[in-house]
């Protein structure tokens, strides 16, 4: 531990901020984990703000509908969708926020759902690949991916489609390959479908501007 840091810790202690002291006013949760850092006699005023570690009921707004489920706080948005809601379009590949196969759109922005806690996105609008088709009609980005053979094994494809949709929603005037490459810099494919993906995104940009945006 750095000297600097040791000093800070000491300072915290000197200021009378003992473990027992600072935990006053923080509620108790049951279970060995909670009690390890929480005082038994702490007050309950923040009880509504502590959850778990065992499974807790949560509500996720996915594709426009509220979904109620019971998960531990450690469950990611991706695993909640895949293991609890049977929304398996988003894929678990690197599981460390690098490859983009798990991409979802949360409040209008693309995110790696493997690196988001499910409990953390309550009250937000979550869009998955399952939710972008409208009335059974595939989204123009999905159509463009098929038209340009922007897929092989297809395991990265839902993530790419979501990343492309999120990108085009925010940048409807995309016209160059360079823009597409920058916009999709957070997704990886192993089969090597990028040639098709580049064309697909440009085609989708045109189609979406033509009023076919979902």
């Amino acid at each position: 531990m750095s000297k600097h840091h040791d000093e800070r810790e000491e300072k915290a202690l000197r200021s009378g901020f003992s473990r027992r002291g600072f935990l006053k006013g923080v509620s108790v949760t049951s279970g060995a984990l909670g009690s390890a850092i929480l005082e038994e006699d702490a007050q309950a005023q923040t009880a509504g703000r502590l959850f778990g570690p065992s499974a807790v009921p949560i509500t996720l707004n996915i594709n426009g509908a509220d979904q109620k489920l019971t998960v531990e706080p450690r469950v990611t948005l991706l695993d909640a969708c895949r293991n609890h809601l049977d929304l398996t379009g988003a894929k678990r590949v690197c599981d460390r926020g690098t490859c983009g196969a798990c991409t979802m759109i949360v409040n209008g922005k693309v995110v790696y759902s493997c690196t988001v806690l499910a409990i953390d996105v309550q009250g937000k609008k979550i869009q998955t690949i399952e939710g972008i088709s409208q009335a059974g009609k595939p989204h123009p980005v999905s159509v463009a991916f098929v038209n340009n053979d922007a897929q092989q094994c297809g395991y990265c494809t839902p993530g790419f489609v979501m990343a492309a949709k999120g990108f085009l929603d925010r940048n409807p005037n995309v016209t160059t390959l360079e823009q597409v490459e920058k916009g999709l810099g957070g997704n990886l494919c192993r089969c090597g479908t990028y040639v098709g993906v580049r064309k697909a995104v440009l085609e989708a940009a045109k189609a979406m501007k033509g009023g076919r945006n979902a």
Binding site: T88, P138, V146, Q151
Partner: peptide
Amino acid sequence: YRRVDGIEKATGRAKYNSDLN
């Protein structure tokens, strides 16, 4: 031709065995 299972894959409907519940 476009691949016949393309739209399934591009809409996330395609079920891989890792997707099974």
